[in-house]
Design a protein around this nucleic acid. Structure first.
Length: 612
RNA sequence: GCCCCCGUAGCUCAACGGGAUAGAGCAACGGACUUCUAAUCCGUAGGUUGAGGGUUCGAGUCCUUCCGGGGGCGCCA
């Protein structure tokens, strides 16, 4: 059984001390046994969280499904199963409802022992996968020639979260930014710079490093220059075929090792990476490697020759292509374009070579590409080509995890009121400013040192921004509304932080009062019970998020934990509680809740302030 | 023309591989601070899930036909 595993066909590591399953799994085992004893296939015993919390904690719908295959009455099956369930210490009640739902309520003592288990076990008793597979998460994907804008937010934030989720579950993960730094945009920037400053040594064909000395160490352009130049040159290329032809030539020359171009490319690369490190750093997005298209440039020429030699690739209209259509395709599948007719390389070329490199040199067991959903065809082509070329054996997972676009209120890709794109750096500054204003107007943290207020504003602003993105399902094209992304009330990142901060505050006062956590006892208040029931689901949630590649599952759950904590907080006053056993149990309970928050917010890439 | 994604409350979004009465936040209205932080909590109101047809005990979810939006379809990334 041990049903939870990622779609990598990898079993969960069961070598855990004590409780080896999640509560849900444990209930599923019991029900499966009962179904089996009743003469029905045990797979019908699957237990899920109740859709009607006022009726039950968990439910099993198997009797309904089994009715079809067995031809028996569903309520009769349910009755039979219910009669065979005998686990009084775990299941306090089992009832048949409606057409044949089995409603389960968990025994309070058992629930408390689960929370206690989380408190004592490592990692809140969340199992790690038993799989040495290396997962490379390819996200961020900035183009070297453009400053980061809101459109880059999704890949960065979703990719970062997925990487953290996989890592938390025990996978060896590598986050790779995969910079776009070897294609046509570079050729375009080169000729734009050449047109503006033809006197620069990089463009002098006569320049000889051995005679004239090395190229200047100082960059001829700043990041702002590049951002300004890029739209200019793309427009010029669109309007004038001759300019476009020169850009293509420059791209070819760069890729074939023209020294001056390589030298100026290096400058472009360095100023651009410096800017990206700043922006992604400000977002709290951390890449393990800063590779890019150019990383594989040495492999391109040999790769194309080899593929041509082996017959995987072929010439077509002067270009080199790989056919990737499969007989069972129902739709037309165009071949992957490996080189242009002038021999220069494309996005497809570097992507294919990158797969080869990742498998051969980085031991990639799974490649997760967190890239705009519009590129799905491209990735399907590249993945198929990688299989045909033998770069990616069948056991290596290649997966495009797409996401929707960030739109404005008009349904088109987001633009500022002035019609320009909103830079990521400006957006972060804007939201942080909003968070600071919120502190002022609500008279929060007035007595804190200025530096701490500043830090709180930063953390709160980023939380609002990230949660605002991650709470959406990744596939939906969401509407970017600055007001929503800088809201601090309701279902927002700051609410989650606030929940954690409240606990920290209580725990400080608890320590001052000389109180300490004690054994977690059975819940006596509905809000307390609801919180426990929520916490116990942590493992299910994280695995589910990983399997669906959906951080919004974690975001949603984190919000629910925070809500349950708030309700508990309103109802149960810990410091004033007179029953010492209950008080000590509550202290332990909020400690587990805080630990859960710490895990969840970390998976979302959200920091928790000490106070706010 | 072919293919992919999307369409859910006034707005922005969820909905745990088909389950019971489709849930949250915001906005609106009404309550709760001498009480561990009110960035909170409680309540009211808000829906023919774009439209039709089908599959079955049961459909927002699967199939199908339309309508509407976004995107892709060899020398862009």
């Amino acid at each position: 059984m041990r049903s939870r595993h990622l779609r990598f066909d990898v079993p969960l590591n069961d070598d855990r001390d004590g409780f080896q399953m999640s509560l849900q799994q444990q209930l599923t085992e019991i029900l499966s046994d009962a179904f089996e004893a009743e003469g029905v296939e045990r797979s019908f015993g699957e237990v899920v969280v109740s859709q009607r919390p006022e009726l039950a904690d968990y439910q099993c719908n198997g009797a309904l499904a089994a009715a079809k295959s067995t031809g028996r009455n569903p309520r009769e099956i349910a009755r039979g199963v219910a009669g065979r369930v005998d686990a009084p210490d775990l299941i306090a009640g089992i009832e048949i409802a409606g057409p044949g739902f089995l409603n389960l309520s968990v025994h309070d003592g058992h629930l408390a022992s689960w929370v206690a288990r989380m408190e004592k076990a490592d990692r809140l008793n969340v199992a790690q996968v038993d799989d040495p597979r290396t997962i490379i998460v390819d996200y961020g994907g900035p183009n070297m020639s453009k400053a980061l804008h809101v459109g880059h937010l999704r890949s960065a934030v979703i990719g970062e979260s997925l990487k953290r989720i996989f890592r938390f579950l025990g996978y060896h993960t590598i986050g790779d930014i995969h910079i776009g730094d070897w294609g046509m945009p570079i050729g375009q920037l080169i000729i734009e710079l050449e047109d503006r400053h033809p006197d620069l040594p990089y463009f002098d064909p006569e320049y000889d490093v051995s005679v004239d000395g090395p190229y200047p160490a100082e960059s001829p352009v700043t990041l702002d220059d590049l951002s300004e130049m890029y739209p200019v040159i793309t427009r010029r290329c669109a309007e004038d075929p001759e300019v476009a032809e020169r850009a293509r030539q420059a791209t070819f020359d760069l890729q074939n090792g023209r020294e001056g171009y390589l030298a100026v490319w290096k400058h472009f690369h360095d100023v651009s990476v410096a800017g990206q490190k700043k922006d992604f750093g400000a977002l709290g997005v951390e890449f393990d490697v800063w590779y890019g298209e150019s990383t594989v440039h040495d492999r391109l020429e040999p790769m194309v020759s080899e593929l041509l030699g082996s017959g995987v690739a072929r010439e077509s209209e002067g270009a080199v292509v790989i056919d990737v259509a499969e007989p069972e395709d129902t739709k037309e599948f165009p071949p992957l374009l490996l080189t242009r007719s002038d021999g220069s390389y494309l996005y497809s070329t570097t992507d294919l070579a990158t797969i080869d490199m990742r498998v051969a040199d980085m031991e990639m067991g799974a490649g997760i590409y967190v890239v705009d959903a519009r590129q799905s065809l491209h990735f399907e082509q590249v993945f198929r080509a990688a299989r045909r070329a033998g770069y990616a054996p069948a056991d290596v997972i290649l997966e495009h995890v797409g996401f929707g676009t960030v739109n404005g209120k008009d349904g088109k890709p987001f633009k500022t009121r002035e019609g320009g794109v909103l830079r990521l750096g400006d957006l972060i500054a804007l939201i942080k400013e909003g968070a600071r204003a919120r502190l002022d107007e609500a008279h929060i943290a007035e007595e804190y040192p200025a530096a701490e207020r500043e830090e709180i504003a930063r953390q709160v602003g980023l939380a609002a921004l990230k949660f605002g993105d991650l709470t959406n399902h990744r596939m939906s094209n969401y509407v970017f509304d600055i007001d929503r992304f800088s809201a601090f009330e309701g279902k927002t990142g700051p609410y989650l932080q606030y929940s954690a901060v409240r606990i920290k505050s209580i725990l400080r006062k608890v320590a001052e009062a000389g109180l300490a956590p004690g054994p977690i006892i059975a819940p006596t208040v509905p809000q307390e019970r609801a919180l426990m029931l929520r916490l116990v689901r942590l493992e299910e949630i994280v695995y589910r998020a990983a399997n669906l590649r959906a951080p919004n599952v974690v975001a949603e759950y984190a919000y629910e934990v925070a809500t349950d904590l708030s309700r508990f907080y309103e109802r149960c006053h810990i410091l004033r509680e007179e029953n010492p056993e209950r008080q000590a149990s509550w202290i332990a309970l909020i400690e587990v809740t805080l630990a859960t928050h710490v895990v969840l917010l970390d998976l979302l890439g959200i920091e928790i302030p000490e106070r706010m």
